[in-house]
């Protein structure tokens, strides 16, 4: 890579990695929590039926 754009490319890469990494982490957390909710609701429903 040309020296003139090395810093520019580096700055954009770091900033976007941070943002995309955070978005990805949030999406994974949301999916896990929604799975937990589904499981808890099912357990609650089964308990009410018993």
């Amino acid at each position: 890579m040309e020296e003139s754009v090395e810093y520019l490319a580096g700055a954009f890469a770091v900033a976007w990695l941070l943002v995309f990494g955070y978005v990805l982490m949030m999406a994974r957390r949301q999916r896990r929590l929604e799975q937990d909710i589904a499981l808890l609701r099912e357990t609650l429903q089964n308990r009410q039926q018993d």
């Binding site: 978005v23 957390r29 949301q30 929590l33 909710i37 808890l40």
Partner: peptide, 27 residues
């Protein structure tokens, strides 16, 4: 605008976590 969009998603995450706590209390 990006901040506002991400904030919406992050608050929803908190609300989902709280819904889980409520369900656990019921159980």
């Amino acid at each position: 605008i990006l901040y506002a969009a991400l904030l919406g998603h992050r608050v929803r995450l908190e609300q989902t976590a709280e819904a889980i706590e409520r369900l656990k209390e019921q159980l």
